[in-house]
Computed example of a mutant assay.
Amino acid sequence: MKRFLRATTVTILLFMAALGASSSPALASDLKSPTQGASLSWGFTSEKFANRPRHIAGYTIHAKLRMSERDIGEKEVNALVRFGPEGINQGDGTWKIMEADTPFAVVINGSGWVVTVHPVI
């Protein structure tokens, strides 16, 4: 199994390199939330409640590797991002999206890049 995963990892990396795909967003500023909200009356900022992206702009290599290791497909991730709940704003420009009936969570940044996918424990 380890050989298969290693071969799959190498294949993915080579394929992405051949396409000229980036393993991460082009700019570091893409990782930051574009919303800078004003303070609300009860002490929270509107940034905490800012809408997350409902589309996928791309996958980091880390996300692709984790999806491969955990046998999670792009269709499943796309469905959760498009139709799932608002998610939890983690305060660093990313949202963690998970549902009760889905065995995994997706972390997506403000630019729509899937950062990682991990099992829900």
Rank of each mutant, 00 (worst) to 15 (best):
K96S: 12
V117N: 01
L13Y: 05
P34N: 02
Q90L: 12
I72A: 00
T102M: 06
F44I: 13
A21K: 08
W113E: 02
F104C: 00
D30C: 09
S33R: 10
V77W: 06
F83Q: 06
I56S: 03
G87F: 11
D71C: 07
H62P: 03
G73H: 04
M16C: 13
R70T: 00
E47W: 09
V10S: 14
V117L: 01
S41H: 13
L65W: 05
P25C: 10
T45A: 11
L5D: 01
S23L: 11
G91T: 07
F49K: 15
L40G: 10
S33F: 03
A17P: 09
R66M: 05
M1E: 08
G37A: 01
K32C: 08
A79W: 06
S39F: 14
L5P: 04
M67F: 00
M16A: 14
R54F: 01
T8N: 15
A17N: 14
L19T: 00
E47M: 05
T116G: 03
H118P: 02
P119E: 12
V120Q: 15
F4H: 09
N89T: 09
D71G: 00
I88G: 09
A17M: 14
A17S: 14
T102W: 04
T45K: 13
T94E: 04
G110E: 05
A57Q: 09
G73E: 02
D71S: 06
K96E: 13
T60D: 07
E76K: 02
F15A: 14
L65S: 09
A79D: 07
A18W: 05
P119R: 10
P53T: 09
A105G: 08
N51W: 02
L19P: 11
G43H: 06
A100I: 11
N109F: 00
L13T: 03
H118R: 12
D92S: 06
L40D: 06
V81G: 01
G87W: 11
I88H: 14
A50C: 07
F104D: 04
L40P: 07
V115Y: 05
S33D: 11
R3Y: 08
N51K: 11
W42N: 15
T35Y: 10
T60A: 04
S46L: 07
K2A: 04
G37P: 06
F83L: 08
T35G: 04
T60R: 03
A17G: 12
V81Y: 04
G58R: 03
H62W: 03
S111V: 02
S111D: 14
K48C: 10
L40N: 13
P85K: 15
